Simulated assay, not measured.
Amino acid sequence: MVTDAPLREPRTMTVGVVTLGLIGGSLALALRDRGIAVSVWDRNPTTRATAREAGLTAFDELEDLAASGVDLLVVASPLFAMSDIMVRIARTVPPHTTITDAGSVKERVRESVNAAGLGSQYVGAHPMAGTEKSGFAHADPHLFDGATWGLTLAEETKLTRALLVLQFITRIMSGRALVTTDRIHDDSVALVSHLPHVLAHSLTGIAATSPNRELAVRLAAGSFRDGTRVARGSATRNQAMIVDNSRAVLGAVDRAIELLTDVRDALDATEPGTEELTEFFTRGAPIVERASDGEASESEVSLDHANWAEQLLAIGATGSLVTGITVGADVAQAITVNVRGNM
Score class of each variant (00 low, 15 high):
R52Q: 07
S77T: 15
V2H: 15
N245V: 00
Y122D: 05
V93T: 05
A125D: 02
I206W: 14
A58E: 04
S234N: 01
A102E: 02
F144Y: 03
A220L: 09
A220P: 05
L29H: 08
F80T: 15
L65S: 00
T97E: 02
A306Y: 04
P141K: 06
L203N: 02
R52C: 04
V2W: 12
G16D: 05
A309D: 05
R232L: 11
L20E: 04
A285S: 13
A334P: 06
R237Y: 12
A235G: 07
T204W: 07
V243T: 09
G21K: 00
R237D: 13
I99W: 00
V2P: 14
A177N: 04
E289G: 12
A177Q: 05
E9A: 11
D304Q: 06
K133R: 14
A208Q: 14
E279L: 13
R11M: 10
W149Y: 11
L321P: 07
I242H: 03
T209H: 15
D254Q: 15
E9F: 10
V74M: 10
D4I: 15
V331R: 07
P6H: 02
E271C: 10
G124I: 01
Y122F: 15
V198H: 04
L143C: 02
S299W: 05
D42T: 02
M128H: 01
T97D: 07
N245L: 01
R229A: 05
A200L: 06
L22F: 06
S223H: 13
A296G: 11
G130H: 01
T148D: 09
A5Q: 00
P272Q: 03
R108N: 14
I184E: 15
L163A: 07
V249H: 04
T278I: 12
V15H: 03
M82V: 14
